[in-house]
């Protein structure tokens, strides 16, 4: 992602977004964003043409975007740790699946770490790269497998402060 002033913000960087960050000694070395699918989100607003099989939308399904790892950490375990944090966070919050758009070359990596990935459409070129919209299942089995590859014995997630339970964040409709 290019960002001249060190900041790159889009309309989904708002109070509904959740960020899971990889922090090493106070420095952010990777991160990812989760966003509700019951609200307008990137898959529904921008990448709808990539979802011939429909867009899964529910309180317990989040959209997974803005995944990154800083360059010098792309070899090693940072990827696996971020992926483990994703599974653990979703399991703890009662989330059953996440949707994402990624470059196709990510698929074998996800498979290798034990993620169950359901394509939502055929690969489509984005900026000349074949990309795909997919839904990833959240499961204990996937968390176990990715934790193993991440070499994690401790939890994959550290929570600073308290967060309102995710499912309760859904705006209530007056009866």
């Amino acid at each position: 992602m290019n960002c001249a002033d060190g900041q790159e913000i889009d309309v989904y960087d708002n109070e509904s977004a959740i960020y899971l960050l990889a922090i090493d000694r106070g420095r952010v070395v990777g991160g990812q964003r989760l966003y509700p699918t019951h609200a307008p989100h990137m898959l529904s607003e921008v990448f709808g043409h990539m979802t011939q099989r429909g867009i899964p939308r529910a309180q317990h399904i989040l959209e997974w975007t803005r995944y990154f790892v800083v360059k010098e950490r792309r070899v090693g375990r940072t990827d696996c740790r971020l992926l483990a944090a994703l599974q653990q966070f979703c399991l703890e919050e009662g989330v059953t699946g996440v949707t994402a758009v990624v470059e196709m070359w990510w698929l074998p990596r996800w498979h290798q770490v034990g993620f169950k990935v359901r394509p939502l459409g055929l690969p489509t070129l984005i900026e000349d790269q074949p990309c795909i919209a997919a839904e990833i299942e959240i499961s204990e089995a996937s968390l176990d497998q990715v934790r193993k590859l991440a070499g994690l014995h401790a939890p994959a997630l550290v929570r600073n402060g308290r967060m309102r339970p995710l499912i309760d964040r859904v705006p209530h409709v007056a009866a």
Binding site: V75, G76, R77, C80, Q112, G114, Q145, K148, L149, A150, G151
Partner: peptide
């Protein structure tokens, strides 16, 4: 063993060699 490709070196060993 689903990490057949990874068996060669552990992620930690890779990290340290880097």
């Amino acid at each position: 063993n689903p990490q057949s490709g990874a068996k060669i070196l552990t992620p930690r060993e890779c990290e340290i060699l880097v």
